[in-house]
């Protein structure tokens, strides 16, 4: 869509932040519908509206300007708004060959970044399996064995979850050896220091969901 290049996420971002800050779900949905109508594609809405809005909500909480309840509400509204935006962008087109399994190392919350990656890959024709947070490691490994994905994407939002992330990677490597999938990691600790990815046994990391989609497109071939 040529309109997308002209559409500016910044104005939608400000309005969207105002809506989730005050817990107004209807208004938040309306703003995202308007952003779609203005020509913003899903990636622009995810990275230009949702992601900066949630980061700002986190800062507002840190500065004691929002309560934990208000922060959770803003996240819940955003998850619903993401599902709604995804539904509107959805197509049945798939190449059916490239597969990815995604799981968060965190035991709670902070699942939004990985959800964004899965949605954007879906639109590129990938088959993604999103498991969210708190997946037991043995059950993750069993699913990797069964589905044989090209990629396993793992995220850790906070450094205390890194030991669990490393254990997940080690378990996948142990179980599948040479036939293991490509392992991608993401989250705040890897933004601060991308070299951590390799130290934890992963193959690659990316700065955001769009970069991850591009990187995986280059690394994983379509036809098999």
């Amino acid at each position: 869509m040529t309109v997308a290049a002209e559409a500016n996420p910044a104005e939608h971002y400000a309005a969207y932040l105002g809506a989730i800050r005050s817990g107004d779900r209807r208004r938040a949905f309306q703003i995202i519908d308007e952003a779609r109508d203005a020509g913003l594609d899903l990636a622009a809405i995810y990275l230009g509206v949702f992601q900066p809005a949630l980061r700002e909500i986190g800062s507002l909480w840190q500065n004691n300007e929002l309560t934990v309840a208000e922060e959770h509400l803003a996240t819940a509204i955003t998850q619903a708004a993401m599902a709604r935006a995804y539904e509107r962008a959805f197509t049945w087109r798939t190449d059916g060959s490239r597969k990815l399994i995604a799981a968060c190392a965190d035991v709670e919350r902070h699942e939004v970044g990985l959800r964004m990656l899965c949605d954007l890959l879906d639109l590129e024709g990938w088959h993604t399996t999103y498991l969210g947070a708190a997946v037991p490691i043995d059950s993750l490994v069993a699913m990797v064995r069964r589905l044989r994905p090209d990629v396993v994407a793992l995220s850790a939002a906070l450094s205390p979850h890194l030991p669990r992330l490393r254990a997940m990677i080690a378990a996948i490597r142990d179980a599948l050896g040479d036939t293991r999938p490509l392992i991608m990691v993401g989250g705040r600790p890897f933004l601060d220091d991308p070299s951590l990815a390799e130290r934890l046994g992963a193959d690659l990391t990316a700065q955001n969901a769009t970069d991850a989609v591009r990187l995986l497109g280059e690394r994983v071939s379509r036809a098999r």
Binding site: S159, P160, L162, P163, P189, D192, D193, L196
Partner: peptide, 19 residues
């Protein structure tokens, strides 16, 4: 202490100072 543990484990002081 939760944040101290991975910083020490990965010998990454910046991880702890950022926290």
């Amino acid at each position: 202490i939760d944040h101290l543990i991975p910083a020490i484990d990965l010998t990454q002081p910046s991880m702890f100072t950022a926290y």
